[in-house]
Computed example of a mutant assay.
Amino acid sequence: MAGRDGPAGAPAGSGATRLEVCIHNIHSMMEHSRNQHNGEEEELVLLNDSSLLSHQLGRDLSMNCLIRCSRFDYATLALLNKDFHSLIKSGLLYRLRRKANIVEYWVYYSCSHLEWEAFDPNGGRWMKLPKMPLNEFFQSSDKESLAVGTELLVFGRDVMSPIIYKYNILTNIWSLGMSMNTPRCLFASASHHELAFIAGGCDPMGNILSSAELYNSETEKFEILPSMNKARKLCSGFFMDGKFYVIGGIGDGDMMQLTCGEEFNPITKTWKPIPDMLPRRIDGVVNVTAPPNKAPPLVAVANNILYAADYGEQVVRRYEKEQNSWVIVGGLPERMATVNGWGLAFRACGDNLIFIGGVGGRMVKIYSCIPQQGEALQWNLLASNESRNFVFNCTVMGC
């Protein structure tokens, strides 16, 4: 109500809105609960319904407030009262965040076979995920990872066949996911909101594939898509201009690296070949005789622009789509431990580029930069973490 003083400790100034007061009240409730229980959030007791903010300020305003809170705080918010618990565990808040174009990008990576960590670049905070279910065969197998919607998918192999483990941020639990129509490894993938595109790779018999699939995290089902024009494994995927792209990889029948890319249009469900899409070396040559165990191209799309990191030449290139060419826009922040490109991660985190790798004996560093047109890349060290210095898997979840 205009002219009325806000609650003690509320945002200063007479211009504080009801939304700001609501956010402040939620933070105060969280802090009070943490202090009361010495930070042991798992033992917090749900407050009774009389404390619901939705009763005091209206459900719409409360929801509008909650979607603006950091998702790092959602685990605590879910313990404040039954209404918050229901909202957060249902996934409704994440759907509302998407509609309001509110997205937080977190980096998820693994330097140990069954252990994952999450890093929040905005708050500079770390979170350890629960350890994956013990499966010795899965632990020793090659693994791929992909973040889609509110899920982290880890693809690997059990004794008899490939399997997928799924971590859901709503429940903080690992579970077995649905199998693909064509189980595969060493494939290209990219996600867009609740949808993930997967293409290529090789099947359990070692056959190189051209087939593709679409995964919907809300229905938890895989849908068969039309196949690519070329079969390929050890390829990379990315989403740009509303389309899914696959680049690089080893083709069927030889060990030569493919220089062409392919573009998939989700509306027409058709693939379009793109000749000579693979980045060239500084001397202008495309290395088509790369070793068969070389990692897939390190690519990332930031602000709808494609970038590629060359760990050998220590440079980053930007893709000029109209000319189908690449230009060098800067160097990598630091030379890190790698084996033919494995052990490094190059990802987009919103409009930022993220470069992750190990240095020394037990240290992982995360660098970030915001690419600017016409300017060389300026990398900043976001964080370092004591860990093994080899990044097995890395993905970014935006929700």
Score class of each variant (00 low, 15 high):
residue 48 N to F: 01
residue 23 I to R: 11
residue 342 W to M: 04
residue 318 R to Y: 00
residue 155 F to W: 10
residue 304 N to T: 10
residue 324 N to S: 09
residue 339 V to L: 06
residue 269 K to I: 05
residue 62 S to I: 01
residue 81 N to E: 04
residue 300 A to I: 12
residue 180 M to R: 09
residue 153 L to I: 03
residue 169 I to A: 06
residue 14 S to C: 05
residue 250 I to Y: 11
residue 318 R to W: 01
residue 98 R to F: 00
residue 368 S to M: 11
residue 348 A to F: 00
residue 193 H to S: 11
residue 118 A to C: 12
residue 143 K to C: 12
residue 30 M to I: 15
residue 374 G to D: 07
residue 140 S to M: 12
residue 105 Y to Q: 02
residue 179 S to C: 06
residue 387 S to F: 03
residue 198 I to N: 04
residue 164 I to F: 02
residue 273 P to Y: 01
residue 164 I to N: 13
residue 113 H to N: 13
residue 334 E to V: 01
residue 112 S to Q: 09
residue 303 N to G: 04
residue 393 N to F: 03
residue 155 F to I: 08
residue 266 P to Y: 10
residue 218 E to C: 02
residue 142 D to R: 15
residue 4 R to W: 14
residue 392 F to A: 05
residue 296 P to H: 12
residue 174 W to V: 08
residue 29 M to H: 04
residue 24 H to Y: 13
residue 231 A to D: 02
residue 393 N to R: 14
residue 337 A to P: 00
residue 374 G to T: 11
residue 259 T to W: 00
residue 48 N to G: 13
residue 76 T to G: 03
residue 354 I to N: 01
residue 5 D to M: 05
residue 56 Q to C: 07
residue 39 G to K: 13
residue 238 F to E: 11
residue 27 H to V: 03
residue 268 T to S: 15
residue 202 C to E: 14
residue 211 S to Q: 01
residue 228 M to P: 03
residue 164 I to L: 04
residue 229 N to P: 00
residue 190 A to D: 08
residue 187 F to M: 09
residue 284 G to L: 05
residue 323 Q to T: 09
residue 203 D to A: 04
residue 313 E to P: 00
residue 200 G to N: 03
residue 372 Q to G: 00
residue 300 A to P: 10
residue 2 A to Y: 04
residue 383 A to P: 07
residue 351 D to R: 03
residue 107 V to A: 14
residue 193 H to F: 05
residue 181 N to D: 09
residue 151 E to I: 02
residue 102 I to G: 06
residue 38 N to E: 14
residue 238 F to I: 07
residue 144 E to R: 08
residue 164 I to D: 13
residue 145 S to W: 01
residue 146 L to I: 10
residue 183 P to N: 06
residue 41 E to Q: 06
residue 371 P to L: 02
residue 202 C to K: 10
residue 49 D to P: 04
residue 182 T to D: 04
residue 122 N to K: 13
residue 8 A to R: 12
residue 39 G to C: 04
residue 52 L to G: 13
residue 399 C to F: 06
residue 295 A to W: 07
residue 139 Q to C: 12
residue 19 L to G: 07
residue 345 A to S: 13
residue 174 W to T: 10
residue 285 V to H: 11
residue 211 S to E: 02
residue 294 K to C: 08
residue 253 G to Y: 10
residue 195 L to K: 12
residue 32 H to G: 03
residue 177 G to L: 11
residue 309 A to D: 10
residue 183 P to F: 02
residue 226 P to N: 07
residue 319 Y to S: 01
residue 170 L to G: 06
residue 23 I to G: 11
residue 144 E to Y: 04
residue 149 G to Q: 12
residue 352 N to Q: 08
residue 218 E to V: 08
residue 271 W to V: 15
residue 331 G to P: 08
residue 116 W to M: 11
residue 103 V to T: 09
residue 86 S to L: 09
residue 311 Y to W: 14
residue 283 D to I: 02
residue 262 E to I: 12
residue 290 A to L: 14
